[in-house]
Design a protein around this nucleic acid. Structure first.
Lengths: 350, 350
DNA sequence: GTTAGCACTCAGGGGGTTTGAGTGCTAAAA
DNA sequence: TTTTAGCACTCAAACCCCCTGAGTGCTAAC
């Protein structure tokens, strides 16, 4: 796509004005905006050219021009200037990262919220389900004679626990025996490898305490399953209604329900190779997103796994600002996970 | 409020029609609906009476009538027929209760979602923050030479854990010592009782491992704080837009943002004495809820604590159906917690 | 290649009219 | 006394029409 410098300036001015105002942009406004000594007629000629190249479109004959998805694409790839975060913005992100981010589980949710607040657009966060997680170790802690805590730690250093109450009493020795048995039999196994036969063998070996085996192992299975499952968290959906393009319910509702809770993780785009990806309008696969744009970033959560966080908005979203904030946050999250600062989880019972 | 039987029937018919259609109800429609051999003129006279009693109102002179909040209140208190759950509905609720309810932490969220799906209204769930929680016991589990797991259990039987990595190595003996020290010094203490002086004394006693004390104790403090904090989960906000009364953005948006994430728990009404409470329109304290109705139910989560779950919608919400579903679900939740079937939590690190 | 000028287009807003559902009142019937 | 039929009245919503003004494309001159 080779454009004259002037065309580029005009296109950029149109896009930035439209991003701001959501109103079609006329030739006169642009003539002023670019501060060149050309008349609106010249701009009109140029705009006609840009339109025939598919970079602009007209909502109707006598309105100004609006950028086409192709126009946004060119803008994003070539014209857009890096948006620098203000000190205030970085501070806000940093604070958000520090704050309440201790629990891996909530990080997703929290990250989505932060992004949504930061950008004023709805945001989503995906956990990339891990594959072939295994239990690294079991610990059984006696609490009372008829209650103990299971603590399970996976090969990816995730720790979960559960309190178990029993109808009957239990000795410390039994618990010890059980502990050893579990650690020798069920560690290093992935979900598929925990077979009913294995369970039977272990139950046999456990003697009196055979019932406890299945209690503990089914907890372990739950943990493994929950880690392999992908989940979505969305937040800031209400921001959608603040945007002029979603002031009409007919437009807002389908998108809103597409993004709403219980959304299928597969619905959401994921950056493949790059750390960040911008999908403009029809570049989205999902129909409901066909006239929205999505910006997604991924971050490292250790063990080669990546988290995904993204923003959804109208095609005229402020790409420069959003990419800047999103990538800063994603970097922060990577750092957070990388340093292992993030370590808590929680487990509770009753 | 003594009304003739006929007036009661008319009022009820008006309310139920309006609940259904959201359209003002005219005298003719009612004359048919109640199947009495009276003319619309008679109904008009009766409606005029009901209006002068404040039970009905007119949006404007030449429209039909709509129920006033006072009318709904009468309906809820006296006229409403118990809605019976269909087999299908109870099955759905039961299944929802079984499914994915293992983690206390997520119960809130999950319960809100279920309600929202069940009623097609936005729902909220509150955790009633506990007061004066204390740590009952500490367990430190060695993982590697430079990593260990903290497991903390509160007096309310909630267990949380965290993985800690250290820059330097640690002996099993040190960990043992630390463990004993923590259990003798910091158990049975509430948040306020964990003073800096106490910390200093303990650090002194810990010798070389003094740094670890603050690591572990600050984790314990985090846990106590998180339990004392009240939180809200909202879900199904998108349902709001499906309702005719919220088809105009000006009406939907304030409510939506009132309910949106990061909402203050104090905003939400809580049933005090009864297990269920209905707040109709102006009966709500919050301005944003002045022309909505809220139905809240509470359920027992053990230790004398109660969870709260509620539904928000237009004043013409289907009280019969919603109270039935909500109370069934609340009972189910109470049972679930009561039996202690609910026990998992989760804790993870890295 | 650029500009001024001009005829043309069309969404959006304002104002007026029509429609129809619903009301209140009155007078007659039960 | 209660109910009913009839009729005049009201008013939101739908529709229509016209006007306005921002913006365009084209052409002819610079």
């Amino acid at each position: 796509m080779d454009l004259t410098e002037r065309k580029r300036r005009i296109l950029r001015a149109i896009i930035e004005s439209y991003i701001q105002s959501a109103e079609p942009v006329g030739s006169k406004a642009i003539a002023q905006a670019i501060g060149m000594e050309v008349s609106s007629a010249t701009i009109r000629n140029e705009m006609a050219d840009l339109e025939s190249m598919g970079l602009l479109e007209k909502p109707h004959t006598s309105a100004g021009r609006i950028p086409s998805p192709k126009g946004y694409r060119l803008y994003v790839n070539e014209l857009m200037e890096e948006h620098k975060l203000s000190l205030q913005e970085t501070q806000r992100i940093n604070q958000a990262l520090r704050l309440k981010m201790q629990e891996l589980d909530r990080v997703l949710d929290q990250a989505g919220r932060v992004v949504s607040q930061l950008t004023n657009y709805p945001a989503f966060a995906l956990s990339s389900g891990m594959s072939r997680v295994t239990i690294r170790r079991f610990d059984l802690l006696m609490v009372e004679r008829n209650a103990f805590i299971i603590v399970v730690m996976t090969d990816s250093n995730i720790v979960r626990n559960r309190l178990i109450r029993l109808p009957s009493d239990l000795t410390e020795a039994q618990l010890q025996m059980l502990n050893t048995l579990l650690n020798t039999t069920f560690t290093g196994l992935s979900l598929e490898e925990i077979t009913p036969e294995l369970m039977r063998v272990a139950q046999h070996a456990a003697g009196d305490a055979y019932g406890l085996i299945s209690l503990v192992v089914s907890f372990a299975i739950e943990v493994l399953e929950s880690l392999e499952r992908r989940t979505v968290h969305t937040s800031g959906l209400a921001h959608l209604l603040e945007l002029p393009e979603y002031r009409s319910l007919e437009r807002a509702q389908p998108l809103l329900s597409y993004l709403s809770e219980d959304a299928d993780p597969a619905r959401f785009p994921v950056p493949k190779d790059d750390p960040m990806k911008i999908l403009i309008g029809p570049e989205n696969v999902a129909d409901a997103l066909k006239d929205t744009s999505v910006v997604v970033a991924s971050y490292d959560i250790g063990d080669g796994m990546r988290g995904v966080i993204g923003v959804v908005g109208p095609t005229r979203m402020d790409y420069a600002k959003i990419t800047a904030r999103l990538s800063y946050l994603a970097e922060g999250l990577s750092r957070l996970f990388g340093r292992g600062e993030l370590s808590d989880g929680r487990d509770d019972s009753k």
